[in-house]
């Protein structure tokens, strides 16, 4: 396979390897950032700090539960 790429195989393989590495680093950074942010959000919600829409949804759910 490598011989089939000719005398410049090293340059071709390096180009593909570097590109894959750059994409993986960006993807890894985005995934890790997302995990950390969701954890922070859960911590805030566990302390009772919620967005207005989340509070309304929670209140509506408890009203429905009480009515039934």
């Amino acid at each position: 396979m490598i011989e089939a790429l000719g005398p410049h195989a090293g340059f071709i393989l390096a180009a593909y390897a570097v590109s894959a590495l750059i994409v993986l680093v960006v993807l890894g950074w985005i995934l890790l950032d997302g995990v950390l942010l969701r954890r922070q959000m859960r911590d805030l919600e566990a302390r009772g700090i919620r967005r207005r829409s989340a509070r309304k949804a929670a209140a509506k759910a408890s009203d429905v539960k009480a009515a039934s």
Binding site: I30, D33, L37, L44, R51
Partner: peptide, 30 residues
């Protein structure tokens, strides 16, 4: 990748807004 990063950015802004609300709320009040 851009859409994933946008979702993270929205989450980051929500967290910041919640922290500001929490900081402005007296202790013991939800």
């Amino acid at each position: 990748l851009s859409l994933m990063a946008m979702r993270n950015e929205i989450l980051r802004r929500r967290i910041r807004a919640l922290r500001l609300v929490a900081a402005a709320t007296p202790v013991g009040v939800s």
